[in-house]
Amino acid sequence: MAATIIQYIISGIAIGFIYALVGIEYTLVWNSSGLLNFSHDRLITLGAYIFAGTMIIKLNINYPIAIFLTFLSMGILGALIAQGIFNPLRNMRSNIFAVMGTMLLGRIIAELIRLIWGPVPFTLPGFMTGTVSIGSAQISKANIIIMIVSILVAVSLQLFMTFTKIGKAMRCVAQNKRASSLMGINVTQNICITTGISAIICTIIAILVIPLFNVTTTLAASIGLKGFSAGVIGGFGYLPGAIVGGLFIGVVENLSVLFLPAVYKDVVSFVLLIVFLVVRPSGFLGKRA
């Protein structure tokens, strides 16, 4: 029993890190452009397809180069999306256009995926499989890799934001766009860079979740939504909050299986979201609204 609980907690932490990355990825875009990127789950899916479908299966490139090429293409795509869609939409009269713009973009990406790679799901055999036993608990390698990579991403992002010029500019834009542009920061360009980084994080998520789910068109539908919950529960618009929120949701929903029928596991994160909005709308780490 104890071993099962430990296993639940560890896989909860692993999936929690995925939610945290999703939270980080959309919070970056939110902070820089003021848009909620509802196409992010489709971007994750697209990353998985480019990596698994094209780079590995079709072109048979080795993993490091494939990862690098996927990052590159997704980063460029992210910047293009920001320039072509986010920038015109964010200045419109109502934020409804921006939300719908990202939603439509998501649909277009989904349709493209269906047309290019076909609707049949597939897997990457032998990619991050196998388990490690610690004591009596069996932990899958994928979960361990997820944790290590996520921590690396979060730390390097923090370092990037603190020490590089672009990172500092990103923080300025997040706080005040007009003042930033008066200080000589090119806000439009900054949004492109941020969205590009966000798209790369999407790709990291995509590669990490391939062993957990198959490569399907709905690969990221549920983690996309739970990433939103993670953001709110941790403190909306605050990067460390996304991590705390993600881990919290991951662990709680995995432990919920002990009390609830397993099919309702996916409902937990949403119930937590509502509870937090009623009890503590600013989230774990957010400032009081």
């Binding site: 909620l36 939300v99 939504l225 709110v232 099919v263 949403f270 509502i274 909005l277 709308p281 609204a289």
Partner: peptide, 24 residues
């Protein structure tokens, strides 16, 4: 819960609500 706060919370809760209805 979502409308007494300022911000985008309604978008997030409604999308989650819809998903829960479908799952149930």
């Amino acid at each position: 819960p979502s409308l007494r706060l300022k911000g985008v919370y309604l978008a997030l809760t409604t999308i989650g609500f819809s998903e829960v209805v479908r799952l149930v």
